[in-house]
């Protein structure tokens, strides 16, 4: 099963729509609720990162019997130092974004904690690609 979703940079009002849609799909497949939460938490953090830090992005979700694979790619400034970005507390979020309660520098660490496989690749000046895989245990 495949599903695709576009994200607009700066659109905080709609941030989380793809995650909500995915949650409904995963629930309808009767998957374990902790797996569902881990997966949608990861996708939410990825969605918000595109909204907060990039210009536009796209989400591709592929659901197989044994795994859920999500690829979030964006056009944006990219990430210069991925190791630094992965550190808890590191954030370049703007003051406006922080005022809304984003910018704790915990989104990427949350994705790491809530996924079985996380791959983050970026070309500074062009964009970022994040791949998340969660295994479905039967």
């Amino acid at each position: 099963m495949n599903f695709s979703y576009d994200i607009a940079g700066g659109d905080f009002v709609n941030a989380g729509q793809a995650s909500s849609a995915l949650k409904k799909i995963l629930k309808s497949l009767n998957l374990d609720s902790s797996l569902i939460r881990r997966t949608v938490v990861s996708l939410y953090e990825a969605e918000v990162n595109v909204v907060a830090h990039a210009w536009s992005g796209n989400i591709q979700v592929n659901i197989q019997p044994d795994q859920i694979c999500i690829v979030v790619s964006d056009k944006g400034p990219g990430i210069n130092d991925i190791n630094l970005a992965m550190q808890k507390g590191y954030s370049t979020a703007s003051p406006e974004v922080r005022e809304m309660g984003f910018g704790a520098g915990m989104g990427l660490p949350n994705i790491k904690d809530n996924s079985d496989v996380m791959e983050l690749r970026s070309t500074p000046g062009e964009g970022t690609e994040l791949k998340i895989v969660n295994k479905i245990l039967s």
Binding site: F102, M106, P109
Partner: peptide, 26 residues
């Protein structure tokens, strides 16, 4: 801090916050 809640709150908890915008519902 929304990511703090995402990372550490557990299901079926009550969440106390002063944030008042749509992202808290998500």
């Amino acid at each position: 801090l929304l990511s703090d809640v995402m990372g550490y709150a557990k299901h079926d908890m009550v969440w106390v916050t002063l944030q008042n915008h749509v992202n808290i519902i998500a």
